[in-house]
């Protein structure tokens, strides 16, 4: 998206002064940013930096202490999702929003076949034609590079990388407008990570996905994110276009993060 597009467009998501504290520990402090349609925002930082707290607060998993998470809804335009009723928020989270967990087991039904896992969101929004649901599930298995012949297998029979790809298919099948991802490549072997990243990059481009990706892995944001926020101790210490931030980090902490990656 060019700068001119951004001026004219309504942000898909406007986060304002979002704060969450756990006892005396700061989760995240007064975070504000806009996400425009088709943009991918990366949030990086070490564990304990507040990036996961921020993600879960935005996605409605944990209520923040204050702030706004304004989403441009299809029906009513921009609305603060934190002020929505629980039914509205749950409806949003199975239609226009999606959440990819770090551990595929948390995002999959392990006792349900791959096809059933992908089909669930379709059925949740009223899909009542078995043949259509199955055809879409088969199509999505192909798109995440899982053989269609595995459609009736349970995810417990899948490798870690396949489980993660299945979780992605299950989330994207209804064409959500905003995808939250929590360390989507975490815990996978390096070669498996590379394949998953390639796949994600392809899907992001092809579908024009808007996404917020939390990761400690700068290679992930380098490949996927248009913009970047760097978090430390609950604060955003630096933000900007991904290439600019990574190639010319201004904050001492960002410099440290970038250099430690380069040493690897």
């Amino acid at each position: 998206m060019t700068r001119d597009d951004r001026k004219s467009a309504v942000p898909l998501l406007q986060v304002r002064n979002l704060a969450k504290q756990y006892g005396r520990r700061i989760g995240c402090r007064d975070v504000s940013f806009d996400l425009y349609p088709g943009e991918v925002m990366g949030i990086v930082g070490e564990s304990g930096s507040g990036k996961s707290t921020l993600l879960n607060a935005m996605a409605g998993h944990h209520a923040p202490d204050r702030g706004e998470v304004v989403f441009d809804t299809r029906a009513d335009g921009p609305r603060d999702t934190l002020k929505m009723s629980e039914p509205e928020r749950r409806m949003l989270s199975r239609t226009d929003w999606a959440f990819v967990h770090q551990h595929a087991r948390e995002g999959l039904r392990m006792s349900v076949s791959a096809g059933g896992n992908i089909g669930e969101r379709l059925m949740a929004v009223g899909g009542r034609h078995y043949g259509d649901i199955r055809a879409q599930a088969a199509d999505w298995l192909g798109r995440v590079e899982i053989s269609e012949s595995r459609i009736d297998d349970r995810p417990s029979a899948f490798s870690g990388g396949m489980q993660q790809r299945l979780q992605i298919a299950r989330n994207l099948v209804t064409g959500p407008r905003l995808v939250f991802m929590d360390e989507p490549t975490g815990g996978l072997d390096v070669s498996v990570q590379a394949r998953l990243l390639d796949l994600l990059r392809g899907l992001v481009r092809e579908m024009g996905l808007s996404a917020i990706i939390v990761t400690h892995d700068l290679a992930v944001v380098r490949l996927l994110a248009d913009r970047l926020m760097v978090m430390k101790d609950g604060d955003v210490v630096e933000s900007g276009l991904t290439d600019q931030v990574l190639d010319d980090p201004q904050h001492a902490y960002t410099q440290l993060l970038v250099s430690s990656v380069l040493q690897v």
């Binding site: 039904r109 096809g115 899909g127 199955r134």
Partner: peptide
């Protein structure tokens, strides 16, 4: 309470697929 009954059809889907 929220009429979230997609899972019931997941069960029927699993029935047919098996």
């Amino acid at each position: 309470a929220l009429e979230e009954y997609g899972l019931m059809h997941v069960k029927l889907y699993e029935d047919i697929s098996q």
